[in-house]
Design a protein around this nucleic acid. Structure first.
Lengths: 199, 199
DNA sequence: TAGATTTGCTTAACGGTGTTAGATTATTTA
DNA sequence: TAAATAATCTAACACCGTTAAGCAAATCTA
C-alpha cells in the first residue's frame, strides 16, 4: 500500500508548485502583484487550497526568503572555494553577493528590502546565520596576524556589508544606472576595505 | 468678495490635513496600514474627497517623499554651514543624513526603501537633484587640489552614499542593533573615505 | 457490498483595499 | 426666490487575505 507515499509525494509537489508559481508571478509582475488568488490560478486550484500548505501569505514569503538564503549561501561558498588566498576569497565572496543581488533581484528585495512587508521573524533563521558565519570567519582569517577581537571583526563585517548592500539597493531604486561605474565602485571599495583591514 | 480666497485657503488647508493625517497614520502604524479610508476618517471626510486633492494614493506618497527631500536638503545644508573646512563639512553632511534617517524613519523608508511600492516617477524630482548637487559640490571642493574629472567625483559620491545608506538600511531591517557600534562604524567609514579622497 | 467517514476541493462570505459614478445636499449667483 | 454650481456622500466595482460551510468523490468499516 504505497499509495500513502504517492499521495504524500503529490502533496509535496503541490507545495513546490505554489512556491514556483509565486516566484514566477513576482518575476513577471513584481512583489506588488503577488496574490493568493493569482497563485491559485497558476496552479489550477482555488485560493483556499493554499492554506492547506501554508499558514498564510507571509509563510510563503518566509519560505521563499529561506530558499534565497540557501542559494546565496551556496553561491558565496562556491566563490570562496575558488581561491586559496584569504583576501582573494573575501573579494570573490562579495562579488558573488553582488551578482546574486542582480541575478535574483526578486529574492534580494525580499531578503534585504528596507521594510518590505515580509517576515518579522527574520531573527533566528539558521540559513542567515550560516551566511554571517561564512563572512565572519573569512574576515577573521584575513586579520589573523593581529589576533583580532570579536567586536573588531564584527565591525569590519558590517562595514563591508553596508557598502555592498548600499551600492546594490541604491542601484535598484534608481534603476538603470551606469553598469560600468558600478563595477568600478564595487571593485574600488572592496580593494580599499580589504587593504584597510590588512593595514 | 474675498470669499474666493478664503475658500482657496480652506482647500489648501485640507490638502495639508490630508498629508498630515497620512503621516500620522504611518508614524503610528507603519506604511502597511496607510489607507485612503483611514486618512479620510482622520480628516473627518469620506474617502472620495481625497481624490479632489490628489490624483491617487501614489500621488500622496510622492508628495510626502518630496517633502522628505526638502527637509533632508535643509538639514544637510545647515550641517554644511556649521563648518568652514571642507572635510569637516562633508563629515557633518553625512552625519546629518544619518540622523535624518533615524529621526524620520518613515520618510527615509519612503524615499530610499528598496522597491517600496511608491512612486515610479522618482526620476526628475528637482528636490533630489538639489541634494545630489550639494554633496557633489562639496566632494569636488575637497578634491580640488587634483582637478578631478566628473566621473571620479561621481564615483566618490556613490561610494559615500552606498556605505551610509547601506549602514542605515541594514539597521532598519535588523532593527535594534548596537547603537554604539553603529556610530563607530559610521565615523570610521567616513574618516576612512574622506582620507581616501584626500590621499 | 452498504453505510459511515474521511479527504480534496469549491463556493460563498467577511471585512478590508483603491477607485469611480451617481445622487444628494449646501452654497452661490442671477 | 429660482437656477446653477460646488461640496460632499452613498453605493458600487474589482480586487485583496482569510475563514467557514458544503459538496462530491474516495476510502475505510461493518
Amino acid at each position: 500500500m504505497g499509495s500513502k507515499e504517492r499521495i504524500q509525494r503529490l502533496k509535496e509537489e503541490t507545495r513546490v508548485n505554489i512556491l514556483d508559481a509565486a516566484l514566477q508571478i513576482v518575476k513577471e509582475e513584481g512583489w506588488q502583484a503577488l496574490s493568493m488568488r493569482k497563485i491559485a490560478d497558476k496552479i489550477e486550484y482555488t485560493a483556499p487550497i493554499i492554506y492547506e500548505y501554508f499558514l498564510n501569505k507571509e509563510a510563503i514569503l518566509f519560505e521563499l526568503s529561506r530558499q534565497g538564503y540557501v542559494e546565496l549561501g551556496k553561491a558565496i561558498k562556491a566563490a570562496k572555494n575558488k581561491f586559496t588566498k584569504t583576501d582573494e576569497q573575501l573579494e570573490a565572496m562579495w562579488i558573488a553577493y553582488w551578482n546574486f543581488a542582480f541575478k535574483h533581484k526578486e529574492f534580494y528585495q525580499l531578503m534585504f528590502g528596507v521594510d518590505m512587508m515580509c517576515c518579522e521573524q527574520k531573527k533566528s533563521m539558521p540559513e542567515v546565520d550560516y551566511l554571517d558565519k561564512l563572512f565572519f570567519e573569512t574576515i577573521k582569517d584575513l586579520m589573523s596576524a593581529e589576533q583580532p577581537e570579536e567586536g573588531v571583526v564584527c565591525r569590519k563585517y558590517y562595514t563591508f556589508w553596508s557598502i555592498i548592500h548600499g551600492l546594490i539597493s541604491i542601484n535598484m531604486v534608481n534603476k538603470g544606472r551606469d553598469e560600468e561605474m558600478n563595477q568600478h565602485i564595487l571593485k574600488d571599495a572592496l580593494k580599499g576595505i580589504i587593504k584597510y583591514i590588512n593595514e
